[in-house]
């Protein structure tokens, strides 16, 4: 396992533990992500990778250890936590666009209500973001009128509108029809190139090869491997990873 200097870590997990009842979903997780780094988390389902991702902005609580963002430990609840969450963008598997708001409002709501950005400015920035992810012309529509791929790109724009320090992607393409996966991945690859710090839970190995700086392989709630993509895909160290990769490659 490669180790990184914790000092320059933007996201830092130290000895993180979590149980769901009897199930130990996160076992003593240590992970540091530096600014500008793209870390792809892969592993079999039930390995705890989604839980890990959701714990980073405290959508899941943890029982032991600490998680810190840019040097600040995640607070328990309340205003402090809300403030920290505004710095952490999150993209969900099921998009979760606000169903009663237009596409434009979905993107402007956070800047206006959380950051107090004037509406005119928020609208302008939101339109620029929507153009950037290729759905500018959909701005006045409601989420249900868009395809899954378009909705997910809007969700990325919504997260970017908060100008986050780090973006979390929780299986962003898993709920998409195959022909829509690439339009979302393209946006993510572009984002990675621009230097955004990203933690991506995904089953898209192509994305991991193309855009990741590091691949973190999880199994049974533990980080089993943490390596550069080419290293991991060509020469996995653990049996679990070898097994996992062989299952992927046979199809």
């Amino acid at each position: 396992m490669t180790t990184h200097v914790p000092g320059d870590a933007l996201v830092s997990l130290n000895g993180v533990n979590k149980h769901y009842g009897q199930l130990h979903v996160l076992k003593d997780i240590n992970l540091n992500v530096r600014k500008g780094e793209v870390v792809v988390v892969i592993g079999p389902s039930g390995s705890g990778k989604s839980t890990l991702c959701r714990a980073i902005n405290r959508l899941e609580t943890i029982e032991g250890g600490t998680i810190s963002i840019d040097g600040k430990v995640l607070p328990e609840e309340g205003k402090e936590l809300a403030r920290l969450r505004a710095d952490v963008g999150m993209v969900f598997q099921s998009f979760n666009l606000f169903a009663h708001k237009t596409i434009l409002e979905n993107v402007t709501l956070g800047p206006i209500k959380v950051k107090g950005v004037p509406k005119a400015q928020a609208d302008k920035e939101a339109m620029a973001l929507l153009e950037r992810v290729g759905v500018g012309h959909q701005a006045p529509k409601l989420p249900a009128q868009l395809s899954g791929g378009q909705q997910q790109r809007v969700a990325i724009a919504r997260a970017l509108a908060m100008k986050p320090k780090v973006m979390l992607f929780d299986e962003p393409t898993s709920a998409l029809d195959p022909e829509m996966i690439n339009e979302v991945l393209d946006v993510m690859i572009q984002l990675a190139k621009e230097g955004m710090t990203m933690i991506v839970v995904t089953h898209e190995m192509g994305f991991a090869r193309k855009a990741a700086d590091r691949v973190v392989f999880m199994a049974d709630g533990q980080i089993v491997e943490d390596a550069k993509p080419e290293e991991f895909f060509t020469n996995p160290q653990s049996d679990r990873a070898k097994d996992f990769l062989s299952k992927l490659l046979t199809h």
Binding site: N57, L59, G78, K79, A82, R83, R85, A86, D87, V88, G89, M90, F92, S94, N96, L97, F98, A99, H100, L109, G110, K113, V114, K115, A155, R158, A159, M162
Partner: peptide
């Protein structure tokens, strides 16, 4: 997921409720 998305962009509990949950 609606509440989770609202919390993830930094909304406080009162905002999540009044802007996202109650209108729906």
């Amino acid at each position: 997921g609606q509440a989770e998305a609202a919390r993830s962009i930094g909304m406080k509990f009162s905002q999540v409720l009044s802007l996202i949950i109650l209108p729906q």
